[in-house]
């Protein structure tokens, strides 16, 4: 087990440990109430610079489009009402080319100061994975924090629809020829076609599941359905590791252990809570793992509902990725 201290906790607590720093925020303006949680917290703490960017990411047109548009409009009005700058919102399609993802991040990075907050709460994996990679590998920022806000609840309907084929996320394709022996899946609410699509590729790998704990009812029911889906399709024995749903550091450690310090080549499937996905992302950057996903084209407009509050403030967790120029998540 790696005993590196990796600071994470409630965002105000982390901010309190970095007095005097001003932060630039890259986040998403989405239909979710919680998409503004990080921004509101930073704004209230008066630590935001003027160089912030909120991405309005448009998914594919569907029966949800009118409702999604209306809800984004509500968030937009709230953002303006709370003193947000009109110019800081940029509209992009969900399936923009990889080059546009990189350009978006690079533009933000070059304008941002030394301290960056990337709010992954409502950013699709297709976005936040390459963003994190680009920040870790290219940014000159001295401090980088990823944040994740908790909602009140999730819709009990399908969270997302119209899944793409199982493919590497942008910038997480295999680096070269290698034999992959480990398949790690972080378990979420929906398997999104994963079990059907991975049997050919991963049928012979050791499979390890990062099971979020404690999600509590009714979430755990959906998590176990996910596991059952995998069990039905894959002949492999599934090793389940229970990992705190908010503990990126612990999830990262599990990945390190599962891959023998990154020596065993692994394919990672981030379907679980965002903090686990963040761990997979950071681990994959270091270990050269392939990260694949069945990217949905459509998200439910009520994907999540409300904002969870803690002491009257939005419940936002912060994960320090880089501190004073030192990367925190290393092998």
């Amino acid at each position: 087990m790696n005993h590196t201290f990796r600071p994470w906790g409630m965002l105000p607590w982390i901010l309190g440990k970095c007095p005097g720093l001003k932060w630039s925020l890259l986040a998403s303006l989405s239909p979710e109430d919680r998409c503004l949680s990080t921004w509101l917290t930073l704004k209230k703490s008066t630590v935001l610079t003027a160089n912030n960017k909120l991405l309005r990411i448009k998914d594919k047109e569907s029966r949800f489009t009118p409702q999604t548009t209306r809800k984004v409009e509500e968030r937009w009005k709230e953002f303006l009402a709370e003193g947000g700058e009109r110019d800081s919102v940029v509209e992009l399609d969900l399936f923009v080319a990889h080059a546009d993802l990189v350009k978006t991040l690079d533009d933000f990075d070059s304008a941002a100061g030394e301290n960056i907050v990337l709010d992954i709460t409502s950013l699709p994996k297709r976005y936040f994975f390459p963003f994190i990679r680009r920040l870790v590998e290219n940014s000159k920022a001295r401090n980088i924090i990823a944040t994740y806000a908790i909602p009140s609840s999730y819709t009990d309907q399908a969270l997302a629809e119209r899944f793409q084929e199982w493919r590497p996320l942008p910038m997480f394709a295999p680096a070269g020829e290698a034999t992959y022996t480990k398949f790690v899946v972080s378990i979420g609410f929906m398997s999104m076609g994963l079990p059907d699509q991975v049997r050919q590729r991963c049928g012979q790998m050791d499979v390890e599941l990062l099971f979020p704990f404690p999600p509590g009812p009714p979430g755990f029911h959906r998590n176990w359905e996910f596991v059952m889906d995998l069990q039905r399709e894959l002949p492999n024995k599934l090793a389940i590791k229970h990992v705190d749903a908010r503990d990126t550091s612990l999830a990262f450690d599990h990945l390190v252990i599962a891959t023998d310090g990154g020596h065993k080549r692994a394919v990672l499937a981030p379907y679980g809570p965002k903090p686990h996905s963040l761990a997979m992302c950071l681990f994959a950057i270091r270990a050269g793992s392939e990260v694949c996903y069945t990217q949905p084209s459509i998200y439910h407009p009520d994907y999540s509902i409300g904002r969870s509050l803690c002491d009257g403030q939005p419940e936002v967790y912060a994960y320090v990725v880089r501190l004073h120029g030192h990367d925190i998540y290393t092998l």
Partner: peptide
């Protein structure tokens, strides 16, 4: 139920 998780518009 499997129809929903097929790629290329399974839910539709």
């Amino acid at each position: 139920h499997k129809i929903a998780v097929e790629e290329a518009g399974g839910n539709d």
